[in-house]
Amino acid sequence: MTSPTHSPEDSRRRELGAFLRSRRERLSPQAAGIAAGARRRTPGLRREEVAMIAGVGTTWYTWLEQGRDVRPSVEVLTALCEALRLDAAEKRHLFILAGRQQPERRAATPEKVDGPLLHMLQSLVMQPAYVVGRRWDVLAWNPAAAAVFGDYGLLEGDARNIVHMVFTNPHHRRLLVDWEGLARAVIASFRAESAKYVGDPDFERLIALMTRSSPEFRAWWPRRDVVRNLSGVKHIRHPSAGSMSFEHMSFSIDDGSDMRLIVYTPLAEQNSIAKLEKLLETLPAERRTA
């Protein structure tokens, strides 16, 4: 006798139901703000209690736990997350199991680069690297990045933003061999990544500033071009080392912050590796630490 087969969708629904049940059973009535009352046979909350807190029907929620073909909306999943007191990792897991995109959480607090990431930056001796925040502000960098692109510590506020540097910083603009091509890619990539922050005051202020400050930005931003560039080759014209080529790659920091680590690897062409070594040797002592 052959065992019944289940589709991946069936398996996902069963796993979703099992996950909801496990979170329900671990949550005490007191933690959910419900009086314990008489002796309870069910560990944690009852199904009808979760349904009541989340504002959904008990029968519908029961079907969800049973793995039936019901499709909870983003709003219902959010309500269930709150009812079950899920943390950030559990919320993400629930939305993945439900096949839904979790609403983006806008970080309202100041962005901070933690020690382990700073230590990684410092260890990338021969790879210029920096960390950018959700708005592409440069938050941290290593000595190699300072040697190649300049000392970010001399820049403050909006001036330490990648878009601002590309379009309005004369030094940074002179570094880029194919400035127009790179600038167009930067503005299209920035638009694509900032879509989740439409209406955010910090983004709106930066865009308004760039529109006033750069004629190219003012002309290209309304075109609404979008692109997603995670890697590529960048050719620069360093004021003392001359022509150099780097392969660059962008890595997401998986902590929900929208921070990214950008790493540049010098290529053999144009003697870029030897030139970077020489730049690091001549870097002032106070700039040799991240």
Rank of each mutant, 00 (worst) to 15 (best):
T2L: 10
M210L: 15
I273V: 09
S73M: 12
G55A: 04
R24F: 00
T5A: 12
A31Q: 15
E25W: 06
A147T: 00
V125F: 09
A145L: 03
R12G: 04
P29G: 05
G181A: 15
G133R: 01
A290D: 09
E277Q: 13
L182A: 06
M249D: 09
V226N: 02
D225W: 02
Q122M: 11
A108I: 15
E216T: 03
E104A: 14
G153M: 07
D69V: 00
A192N: 11
S189R: 08
A89Q: 09
Y130C: 02
Y152G: 15
P29I: 15
Q102G: 03
I96A: 13
A208Q: 14
P143E: 06
V186R: 03
S22L: 07
A35S: 13
M210E: 04
R105P: 01
E247G: 14
D202T: 05
D10G: 02
L16W: 03
I262Q: 07
L261H: 07
V76A: 01
V56I: 07
H238K: 06
P103M: 13
E65P: 01
V50M: 13
W179E: 00
D178Q: 06
K234W: 07
G67M: 07
T42K: 14
G67H: 10
M249Q: 13
R23N: 02
G133F: 01
D87E: 12
V263H: 05
P215N: 12
R160P: 02
P29Y: 13
N169Y: 09
E216Q: 11
S243K: 11
D178C: 01
T2I: 08
R26N: 08
W63H: 12
R288E: 04
F246H: 04
D202G: 13
S214Q: 07
E48I: 01
F19V: 04
R13E: 04
Y130L: 05
V113K: 01
E90S: 07
V166D: 03
T282P: 00
G199T: 11
F19G: 07
I187P: 11
W141H: 03
A159C: 07
A147V: 00
R224G: 00
A129P: 02
A147H: 06
E65A: 06
G150R: 12
A32F: 04
S194T: 15
F251V: 05
D114I: 10
A285M: 11
S252C: 11
A79K: 12
F95I: 05
R71Q: 11
Q122L: 10
D255L: 10
R260W: 00
V263D: 03
R134E: 06
V74S: 11
W221V: 01
I273W: 00
E216D: 14
